[in-house]
Amino acid sequence: TEDARKEAKKIIDNGGSPDEAAKFIKKYGLSEDQARELVKRAL
C-alpha cells in the first residue's frame, strides 16, 4: 500500500536499514517478500 511505502521511506530516510523497514511494514499485512519489494521501490 501507499502508506506502507511512505513508512518504509521514512524509516530509511531516518537512518534505518532496509531490513528494519521491511520488518516494520510487515505489520500492514504484507508477506516478507512483498515487504522487501516495497522497501526496494521506496529507495
Rank of each mutant, 00 (worst) to 15 (best):
Thr1Arg: 11
Thr1Gln: 12
Thr1Ile: 15
Thr1Ser: 11
Thr1Pro: 11
Thr1Asn: 12
Thr1Trp: 15
Thr1His: 14
Glu2Phe: 11
Glu2Ile: 10
Glu2Gln: 09
Glu2Met: 11
Glu2Asp: 11
Glu2Ala: 11
Glu2His: 10
Glu2Arg: 10
Glu2Val: 11
Glu2Tyr: 08
Asp3Gly: 08
Asp3His: 13
Asp3Cys: 15
Asp3Tyr: 13
Asp3Pro: 07
Asp3Asn: 12
Asp3Ser: 12
Asp3Lys: 13
Asp3Ile: 14
Asp3Trp: 15
Asp3Glu: 14
Asp3Leu: 15
Ala4Trp: 12
Ala4Leu: 14
Ala4Val: 07
Ala4Cys: 12
Ala4Asn: 02
Ala4Tyr: 09
Ala4Gln: 03
Arg5Met: 15
Arg5Gln: 12
Arg5Gly: 08
Arg5Val: 15
Arg5Asn: 05
Arg5Thr: 09
Arg5Glu: 12
Arg5Ser: 09
Arg5Lys: 13
Arg5Trp: 15
Lys6Gly: 06
Lys6Gln: 10
Lys6Ala: 12
Lys6Thr: 11
Lys6Phe: 10
Lys6Tyr: 09
Lys6Pro: 02
Lys6Ile: 12
Lys6Arg: 14
Lys6Cys: 14
Glu7Leu: 13
Glu7Gly: 05
Glu7Asn: 06
Glu7Pro: 02
Glu7Arg: 06
Glu7Gln: 11
Glu7Trp: 14
Glu7Tyr: 10
Ala8Met: 08
Ala8Thr: 03
Ala8Cys: 12
Ala8Phe: 10
Ala8Tyr: 08
Ala8Gly: 05
Ala8Val: 13
Ala8Gln: 02
Ala8Lys: 01
Ala8Trp: 11
Lys9Pro: 02
Lys9Arg: 13
Lys9Ile: 12
Lys9Ser: 04
Lys9Asp: 02
Lys9Glu: 06
Lys9His: 08
Lys9Gln: 10
Lys10Ala: 11
Lys10Pro: 01
Lys10Val: 06
Lys10Asp: 07
Lys10Tyr: 11
Lys10Glu: 08
Lys10Leu: 10
Lys10Met: 10
Lys10Cys: 14
Lys10Ile: 07
Lys10His: 09
Lys10Ser: 09
Lys10Phe: 12
Lys10Gly: 05
Lys10Thr: 08
Ile11Cys: 13
Ile11Met: 05
Ile11Leu: 06
Ile11Phe: 12
Ile11Pro: 02
Ile11Asn: 03
Ile11Tyr: 08
Ile11Gly: 01
Ile11Ser: 02
Ile11Val: 06
Ile11Lys: 02
Ile11Gln: 03
Ile11Ala: 04
Ile11Glu: 01
Ile11Arg: 04
Ile11Thr: 02
Ile12Pro: 03
Ile12Met: 12
Ile12Leu: 15
Ile12Glu: 02
Ile12Lys: 03
Ile12Phe: 06
Ile12Arg: 02
Ile12Gln: 03
Asp13Leu: 12
Asp13Trp: 11
Asp13Lys: 11
Asp13Phe: 11
Asp13Ser: 10
Asp13Glu: 13
Asp13Pro: 03
Asn14His: 09
Asn14Pro: 02
Asn14Thr: 07
Asn14Met: 12
Asn14Phe: 08
Asn14Ser: 12
Asn14Arg: 13
Gly15Val: 02
Gly15Arg: 03
Gly15Tyr: 04
Gly15Asn: 04
Gly15Phe: 06
Gly15Ile: 05
Gly15Pro: 02
Gly15Met: 04
Gly15Thr: 04
Gly15His: 06
Gly16Arg: 06
Gly16Asn: 04
Gly16Lys: 03
Gly16Trp: 10
Gly16Val: 04
Gly16Ala: 06
Gly16Ile: 05
Gly16Asp: 04
Gly16Tyr: 08
Gly16Met: 10
Gly16Leu: 08
Gly16Cys: 15
Ser17Arg: 03
Ser17Thr: 13
Ser17Tyr: 04
Ser17Asn: 06
Ser17Trp: 07
Ser17Glu: 04
Ser17Leu: 06
Ser17Phe: 03
Ser17Gly: 05
Ser17Asp: 09
Ser17Ile: 05
Pro18Glu: 11
Pro18Cys: 15
Pro18His: 06
Pro18Ser: 06
Pro18Gly: 06
Pro18Tyr: 09
Pro18Met: 12
Pro18Phe: 14
Pro18Val: 12
Pro18Ala: 12
Pro18Asn: 04
Pro18Gln: 07
Asp19Ser: 10
Asp19Cys: 14
Asp19Lys: 07
Asp19Phe: 11
Asp19Asn: 06
Asp19Glu: 14
Asp19Trp: 13
Glu20His: 05
Glu20Asp: 13
Glu20Met: 09
Glu20Val: 05
Glu20Phe: 09
Glu20Ile: 05
Glu20Ala: 07
Glu20Trp: 10
Glu20Asn: 04
Ala21Met: 14
Ala21Tyr: 13
Ala21Thr: 04
Ala21Cys: 15
Ala21Ile: 15
Ala22Thr: 10
Ala22Gly: 03
Ala22Leu: 15
Ala22Trp: 12
Ala22Lys: 08
Ala22Asn: 06
Ala22Asp: 02
Ala22Phe: 13
Ala22Val: 15
Ala22Ile: 15
Lys23Val: 09
Lys23Ile: 12
Lys23Ala: 14
Lys23Gly: 09
Lys23Asp: 13
Lys23Ser: 12
Lys23Thr: 10
Lys23Arg: 12
Lys23Tyr: 12
Phe24Cys: 15
Phe24Met: 12
Phe24Tyr: 13
Phe24Asp: 02
Phe24Val: 10
Phe24Gln: 10
Phe24Leu: 11
Phe24Thr: 08
Phe24Lys: 07
Phe24His: 10
Phe24Gly: 07
Ile25Met: 10
Ile25Gln: 02
Ile25Tyr: 07
Ile25Trp: 08
Ile25His: 02
Ile25Ser: 02
Ile25Pro: 00
Ile25Val: 07
Ile25Gly: 01
Ile25Glu: 01
Ile25Phe: 07
Lys26Leu: 15
Lys26Met: 15
Lys26Phe: 07
Lys26Asn: 04
Lys26Gly: 07
Lys26Ile: 14
Lys26Pro: 00
Lys26Thr: 15
Lys27Asn: 05
Lys27Glu: 04
Lys27His: 04
Lys27Ile: 08
Lys27Ser: 06
Lys27Val: 06
Lys27Phe: 04
Lys27Met: 08
Tyr28Ser: 00
Tyr28His: 01
Tyr28Cys: 05
Tyr28Ile: 00
Tyr28Thr: 00
Tyr28Trp: 07
Tyr28Met: 07
Gly29Thr: 01
Gly29Arg: 01
Gly29Met: 04
Gly29Pro: 00
Gly29Gln: 02
Gly29Asn: 06
Gly29Glu: 01
Gly29His: 03
Gly29Ala: 02
Gly29Trp: 01
Gly29Cys: 14
Leu30His: 00
Leu30Val: 04
Leu30Thr: 00
Leu30Tyr: 08
Leu30Lys: 00
Leu30Gly: 00
Leu30Ala: 00
Leu30Arg: 00
Leu30Trp: 02
Leu30Ser: 00
Leu30Pro: 00
Ser31His: 02
Ser31Thr: 13
Ser31Tyr: 00
Ser31Leu: 01
Ser31Lys: 00
Ser31Glu: 02
Glu32Asn: 05
Glu32His: 05
Glu32Pro: 06
Glu32Cys: 09
Glu32Ser: 07
Glu32Thr: 05
Glu32Lys: 02
Glu32Phe: 09
Glu32Gly: 03
Asp33Trp: 10
Asp33Lys: 10
Asp33Gln: 11
Asp33Met: 09
Asp33Ile: 09
Asp33Arg: 08
Asp33Asn: 08
Asp33Tyr: 10
Asp33Gly: 06
Asp33Ala: 12
Asp33Ser: 11
Asp33Pro: 05
Gln34Cys: 14
Gln34Glu: 13
Gln34Gly: 02
Gln34Phe: 06
Gln34Lys: 05
Gln34Asp: 09
Gln34Leu: 09
Ala35Ser: 03
Ala35Arg: 00
Ala35Gly: 01
Ala35Thr: 04
Ala35Lys: 00
Ala35His: 01
Arg36Glu: 06
Arg36Ser: 06
Arg36Ile: 11
Arg36Leu: 10
Arg36Asp: 04
Arg36His: 08
Arg36Thr: 07
Arg36Pro: 01
Glu37Ser: 07
Glu37His: 06
Glu37Ile: 07
Glu37Asn: 07
Glu37Gly: 02
Glu37Arg: 08
Glu37Asp: 08
Glu37Trp: 06
Glu37Tyr: 03
Glu37Leu: 10
Glu37Gln: 10
Glu37Lys: 07
Glu37Cys: 15
Glu37Thr: 07
Leu38Pro: 00
Leu38Ser: 00
Leu38Ile: 15
Leu38Ala: 05
Leu38Phe: 07
Leu38Gln: 02
Leu38Trp: 04
Leu38Asn: 00
Val39His: 02
Val39Met: 06
Val39Arg: 04
Val39Phe: 11
Val39Gly: 01
Lys40Leu: 14
Lys40Ser: 11
Lys40Trp: 15
Lys40Met: 14
Lys40Cys: 15
Arg41Thr: 10
Arg41Glu: 13
Arg41Asn: 10
Arg41Gln: 14
Arg41Leu: 14
Arg41Gly: 06
Arg41Met: 14
Arg41Ile: 12
Arg41His: 10
Arg41Trp: 14
Ala42Cys: 13
Ala42Phe: 14
Ala42His: 05
Ala42Asn: 03
Ala42Thr: 11
Ala42Glu: 06
Ala42Lys: 04
Ala42Trp: 14
Ala42Pro: 01
Ala42Gly: 04
Ala42Gln: 07
Ala42Val: 15
Ala42Leu: 15
Leu43Lys: 03
Leu43Ser: 04
Leu43Met: 13
Leu43Val: 08
Leu43Trp: 09
Leu43Arg: 05
Leu43Cys: 11
Leu43Glu: 03
Leu43Ile: 12
Leu43Phe: 08
Leu43Pro: 01
